[in-house]
Amino acid sequence: MASTSRTTHPVLDTRSLNRATLARQLLLSRAEMPAQDAVAHLLGLQAQNVKPPYFQLHARLAGFRPAELAGLMESREVLRIVTMRSTIHTHTAQDALTLRPLVQPARDREVNNFRKGLVGVDLDRLAGLARDFVEEEPRTMGEIREELLKEWPDADPQSLSVAARCRLPLVQVTPRGVWGRSGQVRLTTLGVWVGAGPGVEVVEDGVGDRTGAVDDAVLRYLGAFGPASVKDMQTWAGLTRLREAFERLRPRLVVFQDENGVELFDLPEAPRPGADVPAPPRFLPEFDNLLLSHADRTRVIAPELKGRTWTVNQAHCVLLLDGFLAGLWKLDGNILTVELFESFGSSSGATKARTAEIVAEGEVLLAAMAEDGADGSVRFGSIHG
Rank of each mutant, 00 (worst) to 15 (best):
residue 220 R to S: 11
residue 358 I to L: 06
residue 263 E to Y: 03
residue 115 R to N: 11
residue 247 E to S: 12
residue 187 L to W: 09
residue 210 R to W: 08
residue 72 L to E: 06
residue 122 D to L: 06
residue 288 D to L: 07
residue 223 G to M: 12
residue 172 Q to H: 12
residue 254 V to I: 08
residue 382 S to L: 06
residue 236 W to P: 00
residue 19 R to A: 00
residue 227 P to H: 00
residue 336 L to G: 07
residue 64 F to G: 07
residue 102 L to K: 04
residue 36 Q to F: 12
residue 289 N to Q: 13
residue 327 G to A: 05
residue 107 R to A: 13
residue 306 K to E: 15
residue 248 R to M: 06
residue 265 F to S: 05
residue 96 A to P: 03
residue 257 Q to N: 01
residue 287 F to P: 02
residue 333 G to I: 11
residue 334 N to D: 15
residue 380 F to W: 09
residue 77 E to V: 03
residue 102 L to G: 02
residue 156 D to K: 12
residue 262 V to T: 13
residue 223 G to S: 07
residue 24 R to G: 04
residue 371 E to W: 06
residue 133 F to E: 00
residue 207 V to K: 14
residue 14 T to V: 15
residue 213 A to I: 02
residue 37 D to F: 04
residue 172 Q to E: 11
residue 195 G to N: 11
residue 260 N to V: 08
residue 53 P to E: 11
residue 213 A to K: 10
residue 179 W to K: 05
residue 314 Q to V: 14
residue 305 L to E: 02
residue 351 T to L: 09
residue 380 F to D: 07
residue 119 V to D: 14
residue 156 D to E: 14
residue 316 H to C: 06
residue 70 A to R: 10
residue 51 K to W: 12
residue 385 G to W: 05
residue 317 C to Q: 13
residue 227 P to S: 02
residue 15 R to N: 08
residue 185 V to T: 12
residue 132 D to E: 14
residue 337 T to E: 13
residue 149 L to N: 05
residue 147 E to W: 01
residue 75 S to P: 09
residue 265 F to M: 08
residue 181 R to Q: 15
residue 370 A to I: 07
residue 196 A to D: 10
residue 29 S to N: 12
residue 283 F to L: 13
residue 94 Q to L: 13
residue 221 Y to C: 01
residue 40 A to P: 04
residue 237 A to K: 01
residue 292 L to H: 03
residue 116 K to M: 12
residue 73 M to N: 09
residue 32 E to V: 14
residue 366 L to M: 09
residue 343 S to M: 12
residue 181 R to S: 12
residue 344 F to W: 12
residue 305 L to M: 00
residue 233 M to Y: 08
residue 139 R to F: 00
residue 159 S to N: 06
residue 343 S to A: 15
residue 301 I to P: 02
residue 207 V to F: 10
residue 126 L to W: 01
residue 55 F to C: 05
residue 267 L to R: 11
residue 312 V to N: 11
residue 27 L to W: 03
